[in-house]
């Protein structure tokens, strides 16, 4: 069966005074129906531009320079703007990190929750719209949805606002939900509520989810497959279990080593030296090489492709697996 979404060689660039710089550089990924793909990385790795590229929401001076994004065999990068507008919300929907800034403060929750329905199904009566909106709020487990329907975003807590965002996203029954750091701004007990809700809704609707996050705990909790991104590229790609049991790319190791854990005592955290290179000053070879303790001269010469280490496990590192490279 073909995957629901297939990204092939996607490259998104931004025009700057220093010329065109890539934010996403040759990314190939796929998402199966009903599954969750986690995309992990730090600020500037390109994970958010990737999601905007899928939605064709990259604003000037950015543009998709190469590659394709196929949804059920249809290439989204070549769709007309109006066809793309039809598709957004209906086939692919998106939620963001900041539920406060993503909601319009001057409209009621009900008005915003029914916005998609009004656009895609004109001609519904006010009573029908209200019923649909209340139903949407009930689906995301908002208590007393009849009352909340007439309230404004500022009257809701952060967790409730994110529920409203999810309700809006799911109104068009999308096949794919892109969640860009959906719980990063929330407290941990509220995060647990939202992750629980996403999991239940996914089981109910069978939608696929692309979950973008910097939090390895959230990835371990939610994702089927995981892609680790660094400086615009996917550096490791496998299923969630293997990523944690058999991490291969030095950047993945660095990430795992930098997070303090509740289930382990460590004297010092393993900090990755240096910082992520800006997209206008990328190293010529492997982009992680300047920060990598395993780097050799060859790492600075050519960009390592994402190659299979094992069936279903790719890593873009000529030194992987590192114990072999070091023994040699």
């Amino acid at each position: 069966m073909t995957p629901l979404l297939e990204i092939e060689g996607l490259r998104t660039v931004f025009r700057t005074s220093a010329g065109e710089v890539p934010a996403v550089d040759g990314v190939s990924l796929s998402v199966e129906r009903g599954k969750t793909l986690g995309i992990v990385g730090e600020s500037g790795c390109g994970k958010s531009v990737l999601s905007l590229s899928i939605m064709r929401l990259v604003a000037h001076p950015g543009r998709i320079a190469a590659g394709s994004v196929q949804l059920e065999g249809k290439d989204l990068t070549t769709l007309s703007p109006s066809a793309m507008r039809d598709l957004r919300g209906r086939d692919i929907a998106m939620i963001f990190q900041e539920p406060m800034t993503s909601l319009n403060p001057v409209h009621t929750v009900g008005f915003q929750v029914t916005e998609g329905v009004r656009a895609h199904e004109p001609g519904l009566s006010a009573a029908e719209l209200r019923a649909r909106g209340i139903e949407a709020l009930r689906r995301v487990r908002i208590p007393s949805p009849e009352r909340r329907f007439d309230e404004y975003p500022h009257q809701l807590s952060g967790g409730m606002r994110q529920r409203v965002m999810i309700a809006m996203a799911l109104a068009g029954q999308p096949k794919l939900l892109i969640a860009d750091e959906p719980t990063t701004a929330l407290d941990v007990t509220v995060q647990a509520q939202i992750l629980d809700l996403l999991r239940e809704l996914q089981a109910e609707t069978g939608m696929a989810v692309i979950l973008i996050t910097h939090d390895l705990g959230v990835v371990a909790e939610m994702a089927d497959d995981v892609a680790v991104m660094y400086a615009g590229k996917v550096v490791e790609h496998t299923d969630a279990r293997r990523l944690f049991e058999d991490p291969q790319h030095p950047y993945t190791l660095g990430l795992l080593g930098s997070i303090p854990r509740l289930d382990e005592e460590r004297e010092d955290l393993l900090a990755i030296r240096g910082t992520v290179p800006p997209p206008f000053a990328l190293p010529p070879g492997c982009r992680f090489a300047p920060r990598c303790p395993f780097a050799i001269n060859a790492c600075n010469e050519a960009q390592p492709p994402l190659l299979p280490i094992a069936e279903g496990h790719g890593a873009a590192c000529i030194r992987a697996p590192v114990e072999k490279a070091l023994a040699a």
Binding site: V188, T189, V190, Q191, A192, Q193, L195, D196, D215, L216, G217, V218, V219, A220, E221, A223, A240, R241, L243, F244, L256, I259, R261, L262, D263
Partner: peptide, 19 residues
Amino acid sequence: LLAAIPHPDPTRRGRIVPL
């Protein structure tokens, strides 16, 4: 608070308890 934290370990999935 402690029960709500997701662990970076997929074998422990599904054990977080929302408050």
